[in-house]
Amino acid sequence: MSKPTLWRTPTRLSRRLIAAKQPYRCLSCSFRLAQEQAKQDAKTTHFGFENVPESEKESRVGAVFSSVASSYDTMNDLMSLYIHRLWKDRFVRSLNPGLHPTTATTTSSSSPPQPQTLLDIAGGTGDIAFRLLSHATDINNDTMSRVIVSDINPAMLSEGKKRSLETPWAGSERLSWVEANAERLSMLDDASIDLYTVAFGIRNFTNKQAALEEAFRVLKPGGIFACLEFSKVGNRLLNGVYKRWSFGAIPLIGQLVAGDRESYQYLVESIEKFPSQREFVGMIEQAGFMVPEPAWEDLTGGIAAIHRGFKPV
């Protein structure tokens, strides 16, 4: 665990960045349980365990990620005990992005398929995007597919761009960056995306259901929604250990790494508040997706889970 780079000096981007406040129209935060709560007070949503006005959540989430942007990787490493890299590998490999090589001589009447457009939402650090491109290129020999990375937070995006310089995709046309709220992807046409990924992002969204519906809109028929997110641990013993770890140790690590205990407290609490696997499947279906069997895949006993939805043709 003693990696010297872990303790690099924190930068305080957050102090300089004032996240834009935007008016927000949605009435409830996504999941059903919360909807009932929301009836009592239509204008609040949760920010970690605090309830805050919806209009404020977006900017407060913004502040969290601005403040942790540069130490984000370190944080992820510690928070997931380094496992998040394995999860991300597993996530991307299981999605098998890129056009698949097939012996094209077969009788299929269909014309050769168009290059894929992959969308990585809340893609901040580029972690998923780089993996998508590598898989498509190295495994499937597909050198045409493109990835659009989108994030609400400019600080996270510039961190990702900076990191892209160390990858083969620096300056490539196959990689582009867009600042947008996942709940309103107005820059994207209907039915324009083959694969929509969101890794450790959706729990931060103010209105998760709206984001799912937006995913449905931008996906082509036959396209796939795929989500990697912290989840509910099935095993009670493991759950107890993990909770103790996350509530106790992680904010402290956060303080050491980024000098910002509050932001990490938020991260931990937002994980705790995220719906269970089963509830989340319900939300995906509600947005119009078909959910394949098995409905999700637990990683490391359910600390994280992969969910997929299929947009019917």
Partner: peptide
């Protein structure tokens, strides 16, 4: 490969094979 060809024949996308974990 057979799965992908099947998806294409049926008018779906390569990524549609994700329907079959």
């Amino acid at each position: 490969a057979a799965l992908t060809q099947g998806a294409r024949d049926a008018g779906y996308l390569d990524v549609s094979t994700n329907l079959f974990p």
